[in-house]
């Protein structure tokens, strides 16, 4: 039965009873059709903008190819689309904005049901002894994803989400830094200045306040570095990006 669903193996036909009105082949096709539709719909639910960008016809086609290539390995359909970006990169290398949209939507999907964690409050920063600021390290909310995008993907996504007039994919002069996360129950995304993008990457991979202040000097004067980083921290806290600080 599984061989029939996954690779259209007709061996099972001889195990199934034919009746006057409906034969074994027709009966099995109810399962075969249902399998394709169900997985197509699940993929579409997790990637509505990829679906819209590709159009029904092409999305239908890639959904079936994708399912062939990456059959579901998890009990939940929630994870069916985990390789779609990779798949689109391989199969639509001339239209890389499809894969980039898949990446963006998968990050939003991750944010939607990531672990609940209480965001840090501003007073946590105020309580840090001045001599410990240099060692300060940061833990981010599990819903946070950081990405550099080469296309106007978030704008495309927003236009599709709002069902407003479609806009064309546009390649950017240089990649832009973006961030997706969930604050409370609401998903958010925003762009980052190049120095904030760098600071966030550094902080997310264990960089200390001192490391951040040093690194940011690539963009600003040394004397303004601590204030710039402290400003980022204030924003990150207000936006619910941070869940913990440590300084030992």
């Amino acid at each position: 039965m599984m061989a029939f669903l996954l690779s259209k193996d007709k061996g099972i036909e001889s195990d199934v009873v034919n009746t006057k009105t409906i034969n074994a082949k027709q009966r099995l096709s109810i399962y075969g059709d249902g399998y394709g539709y169900r997985l197509h719909d699940a993929l579409s639910e997790n990637y509505p903008a990829v679906h819209t960008l590709l159009g029904d016809h092409d999305f239908f086609k890639i959904a079936y190819e994708y399912i062939d290539r990456f059959p579901s390995q998890h009990f939940s359909l929630r994870f069916l689309g985990s390789k779609l970006e990779e798949f689109l990169n391989e199969n639509y290398s001339n239209e890389p904005y499809y894969a980039e949209m898949a990446r963006f939507e998968w990050a939003l999907r991750k944010a939607f049901d990531a672990t609940n964690q209480d965001p840090l409050e501003v007073k946590a920063l105020q309580e840090i002894p001045i001599e410990n600021w240099g060692d300060l390290q940061f833990t981010f909310h599990q819903s946070v994803s950081r990405m550099d995008l080469h296309w106007n993907t978030p704008q495309l996504w927003a236009a599709i989400d709002a069902e407003s007039d479609p806009i064309p994919p546009e390649k950017l002069e240089y990649p832009h830094a973006w961030l997706t996360w969930r604050h409370g129950l609401i998903n958010h995304y925003r762009s980052l200045d190049v120095d904030e993008g760098w600071a966030l990457d550094s902080a997310m991979s264990g960089g200390s306040f001192e490391n951040l202040c040093e690194g940011i000097c690539e963009w600003i004067d040394e004397e303004h570095a601590p204030a710039r980083i402290a400003g980022f921290l204030g924003n990150w806290i207000n936006e619910g990006l941070l869940v913990n600080l440590k300084y030992d």
Binding site: M1, M2, L5, L6, Y31, G34, Y35, R38, L39, A42, P71, S72, Q73, H74, F75, L77
Partner: peptide
Amino acid sequence: TGLDGVNAHDLL
């Protein structure tokens, strides 16, 4: 609903 680790997400 599946075999050999692959899930058909159907009630077979």
